[in-house]
């Protein structure tokens, strides 16, 4: 089965057709929780991509060694290990980002996207396909988070990636960096995304 997978399709499906955030609604907690700025969204996206890629690689490599009854706990240990590594590395070398993302770093463990890919894809496919799958899904996740973060930052703080676009004391739509703004901005982005993906396909 693995041989007939179209690798190009395999990679790109995560970015548009099966985009984890806009289409599959996976990993919504970090999506909403950390995207008050473009930089935070990007940071969370990259951290998730790393965990996703590494867990897909390991799961794909050990898939035949794991008895199927214990596969879920085994995958969870693999994922949790990589999450802990990310946590320690961020705390050591990027303390600013570590503080901003806070509780959502350990919570990468329960991001349904990662366990979902491990179970639904990596445990059934070759290493190469699993790497492409993880990269595609991870990049799709990064795009979604960065986009949402950038939109919220632009409307809510009047800046983009910390570059101020309006006067220091200008009034901005503060709503968008507050919790309700996360839901509302994502709602309209999802509408837009639906519209675009319907048109293109």
């Amino acid at each position: 089965m693995a041989a007939i997978i179209n690798q190009k399709e395999n990679f790109f499906k995560g970015i548009v057709k099966e985009n984890p955030v806009f289409v599959m609604l996976l990993g919504m907690c970090p999506t909403l929780g950390v995207t008050s700025s473009g930089f935070n969204g990007l940071g969370m996206g990259v951290a998730t991509l790393f965990v996703l890629l590494m867990s897909n690689i390991v799961v794909s490599l050990i898939k035949n060694q794991i008895p199927s009854k214990v596969r879920i706990p085994a995958f969870i240990i693999v994922i949790a290990s990589f999450v802990t590594i990310v946590e320690m590395v961020l705390e050591a070398f990027m303390p600013f980002l570590y503080e901003q993302l806070g509780i959502f770093i350990p919570l990468i463990v329960v991001n349904c996207l990662i366990l979902g890919r491990a179970e639904a894809f990596a445990s059934k496919n070759t290493l190469f396909s699993s790497v492409l799958d993880a990269l595609g899904m991870g990049i799709g996740f990064i795009i979604a988070l960065t986009l949402l973060g950038a939109v919220r930052e632009l409307l809510g703080s009047g800046s983009i990636f910390d570059i101020k676009l309006v006067a220091e004391n200008a009034n901005t739509f503060i709503l968008f960096i507050l919790p309700p703004g996360a839901f509302i901005a994502l709602a309209y982005l999802a509408v837009l995304f639906n519209k675009i993906s319907i048109k293109t396909s």
Partner: peptide, 21 residues
């Protein structure tokens, strides 16, 4: 039509969150 499903639910959640604010 475009708002059906996910978007409208997120929007409601947003308004609910606004109320809790």
């Amino acid at each position: 039509k475009g708002m059906k499903g996910v978007p409208i639910n997120l929007l409601i959640a947003g308004l609910l969150s606004l109320a809790f604010l």
